[in-house]
Simulated scan of single mutants.
Amino acid sequence: MDIKQIINEFHSLESTTYKDNTYNVISLFDLPHKLGTSKEHYPMFFIATNDAPYNIPNTIRELLSVEYDMECTINEVNGNSILRKFAIITLRSSDKHLQSYFIEIFAMMLMKMPQQPSKQELSIEVERLVTIFSALSATPRKKIQGLWAELLVIERSLDPQILINAWHSIPSSKYDFTLGRDKIEVKSTSSEERIHRFSLDQLNPSPSSRLLIASITVRESGQDLNGLSIRDLYDRICNRLQNIEAQIRLYTIIAQTLGNDINKIDAVCFDYITASDTLAFYDYQTIPRILKKDVPSNISEVRFVCNITKLKDITTSNSFDKNDSQLFNSLF
Rank of each mutant, 00 (worst) to 15 (best):
D51T: 11
K96S: 13
S81Y: 07
I3T: 14
G227I: 01
N323E: 15
D51R: 13
A246Q: 08
I26P: 00
T139S: 13
T49D: 11
S276T: 13
I230Q: 05
D324T: 15
V153Q: 03
I144L: 15
D232G: 03
V186G: 04
R84D: 14
E155C: 13
P171R: 03
S173R: 09
E245W: 02
E127C: 10
E155S: 14
I254P: 03
S191P: 01
S325L: 08
T90R: 11
P288G: 09
L13M: 05
T17P: 05
E245F: 00
I253M: 08
K112R: 14
L83M: 15
R210G: 00
E104L: 04
S169E: 10
A255T: 04
Q116E: 15
A87W: 01
S169P: 06
T286C: 11
A166C: 12
V305P: 06
P57Q: 13
S118C: 09
M111H: 07
S215F: 03
R128I: 05
V77G: 02
R128C: 01
K310C: 12
A267S: 14
T309F: 03
E127D: 14
A52L: 13
V66D: 02
T17D: 12
M111N: 08
R197K: 13
I7Y: 06
H97M: 12
K183F: 07
L98G: 04
R181F: 09
I144T: 15
P53Q: 10
G36Y: 03
K4S: 15
K19G: 14
P57W: 02
T286R: 10
Y101T: 11
I237N: 03
D235G: 06
I105M: 05
Q5Y: 12
N78Y: 11
H196G: 01
I244A: 06
S38C: 08
E40N: 14
I82P: 02
S199Q: 10
I124L: 12
S297G: 08
Y175M: 07
F133I: 09
S300E: 11
L279P: 04
F304T: 08
I47D: 03
F198Q: 04
K119F: 05
E150L: 05
Q223C: 13
R231M: 09
L83G: 04
S229Q: 07
E155Y: 12
L200R: 04
I230F: 02
L250V: 07
Q285E: 14
T286A: 15
A267H: 12
V25A: 04
E40K: 12
D277Y: 07
R181W: 08
L151T: 01
R156Q: 15
D324R: 14
F106Y: 08
P296G: 04
D176E: 08
F106K: 06
I88Y: 01
L35Q: 00
A255G: 11
D159Y: 03
W167H: 02
L31G: 02
L200V: 06
